[in-house]
Design a protein around this nucleic acid. Sequence first.
DNA 1: CCCAGATGTAAGCATCTGCTTACAACGGTA
DNA 2: TACCGTTGTAAGCAGATGCTTACATCTGGG
Lengths: 197, 197
Amino acid sequence: MEEAPCPPAGERRRDAAATRLRLLEAARDLFAERGYEGTTVREIAERAGANQALLFRYFGSKQGLLTEVVAQGGLERLRATPPGELFEASLRSLLTGSATGAADRSLEVYLRSVGRGEEEAGTLRELGEEYQSALATLSGAEDGALRADLAMAWLLGIGLMRTVVAREPLAGADPDAVCRLVLGALDHLWSAPDRTE
Amino acid sequence: MEEAPCPPAGERRRDAAATRLRLLEAARDLFAERGYEGTTVREIAERAGANQALLFRYFGSKQGLLTEVVAQGGLERLRATPPGELFEASLRSLLTGSATGAADRSLEVYLRSVGRGEEEAGTLRELGEEYQSALATLSGAEDGALRADLAMAWLLGIGLMRTVVAREPLAGADPDAVCRLVLGALDHLWSAPDRTE
DNA sequence: CCCAGATGTAAGCATCTGCTTACAACGGTA
DNA sequence: TACCGTTGTAAGCAGATGCTTACATCTGGG
């Protein structure tokens, strides 16, 4: 049912799988850039060089597209990253515009797409929980999950400030300098003593 | 031209100033809850108990309303808060749902409204710069502005995680516990040595 | 009292949104 | 070659959105 057996080598004139993939990639990029609500299905189809009707044929709805983008692009690579490297990898990915490719654009999609909608929130929740449980292992404290949430909140905030607000000096700051400051402060977040009366 | 001199004391039957104010307050709350793009002018008018045409008569456009909301509600009170108290006040305001009233809802408006639009970004930029310059005084380091940006990013991220993602344990965490962790880590951000090779 | 301006209302316009439908073109198969 | 499912296209629908227009109603000063 998959893997076309016939076409010699090059690209096919009519290739559903390729079109589907182009739609997926266009959606991933646009969701990361403009957020879920800020992106229209027409823009996605246009960037993919496809007709918008195909988007609904392949994904059912705009929401279905988001679900697939998050599930495919985000979760899989996230699960492959060791928790100890996750924060810095994600941070550097955000700072360099996802050039390292470690955490791809899942954080940015998450960042820009968390809106008011119930459905989108549900779809993105799993991605967030995946981050949380990974980061929670970094602190042995009882409230490790809370600290993980706070760390992830900082990631989201930095991404927000860089890609959305784009204000100096954060937007143009040296990734190493930012990492040094953030990771230094985070060290104390991980190792802070448990609630001691 | 202002201050009606005649009406005895109570409320007037037809009071433009009061209607204007209700629209402003409704817009402030809705922008804070749903973001700029997620809020419709019809919702604002409805919550204010006014006709939507009045919104355009008084503010020209939806964008004009945002500008006024930020300028009036946000900047003025922000400028009245000492920098040393700004971060904790804003953080507690976010954590308790703006109950303290210190930093009002300007941070939330900022948080939920930073979208793709050029105009909105321009309007909100001034608010962000105000926060930055206030926080930048907390660190004597050369890169104080960068550290201020990072601190504000954390604020935004925490607000995002709490009000938008609403995931436990952050959403229901004790504000004091969160403050303890965040302020502790922030201490090290303010006092970290300058870039030492 | 009476009228001009201030205030509030209802309806609608133009456009955009997610989504659907009807149809054309292609391509492997028999 | 004839066929039929697959892939791609064009047009449009119903609803929502920002904004405008034409009109009703109130209020205060002459």
